[in-house]
């Protein structure tokens, strides 16, 4: 059965290949290359500004650290960063969570300039993703 099938295939292959492969016009390649130069933009090969996964873990950790510190800072300054008056339910919960860290961060001091730098790094990450999205015209790409 298999031999018969192979026999038929060999015969058909040999027979059908008698019909030559069709060729387009002589200047086909030239026309395509012209169309590419005129109509097509250069193919965009997305390259991450920051290539390695370790780099992104570092940024994620510093970003999270900066965020925690910023919230802690404002909570301890008694400043009204969050509108407590308008949010009597969720705000106290968050406040309690952050206050539980008070002892942990008491001896730690970071300048506000450091916080700005850390937030800028996180901002760069987002800008990098947005630019790549514009370049490739696709959904924002967060995989590493």
């Amino acid at each position: 059965m298999i031999n018969n099938k192979n026999n038929t295939d060999d015969f058909l292959k040999d027979f059908i290949q008698k019909a030559d492969m069709e060729s387009p016009s002589a200047d086909f390649t030239k026309i395509v290359m012209q169309k590419i130069n005129v109509a097509a933009p250069e193919p965009s090969f997305y390259q991450q500004a920051i290539q390695h996964i370790k780099g992104w873990y570092f940024l994620a950790l510093t970003g999270a650290g900066a965020l925690v510190y910023t919230v802690y800072y404002f909570l301890n300054q008694d400043s009204k960063l969050l509108a407590e008056d308008f949010d009597p339910i969720i705000f106290p919960i968050f406040k309690r969570i952050f206050q539980s860290f008070t002892g942990l961060f008491q001896s730690m001091q970071i300048s506000s300039f450091t916080v700005v730098i850390l937030l800028a790094i996180v901002g760069l990450f987002i800008v990098d993703r947005l630019i790549s999205r514009l370049k490739t015209g696709r959904q924002i790409y967060f995989s590493f």
Partner: peptide, 30 residues
């Protein structure tokens, strides 16, 4: 071109389509 011609059965249409396919493939190489 052969694939295009076997399906479209018209040389002009097949050539035009084959050219467009190469342009499209170039743009989508990424």
């Amino acid at each position: 071109f052969s694939i295009a011609l076997r399906i479209l059965r018209n040389r002009e249409d097949a050539e035009e389509l084959a050219q467009d396919v190469f342009v499209k493939a170039y743009q989508s190489l990424d």
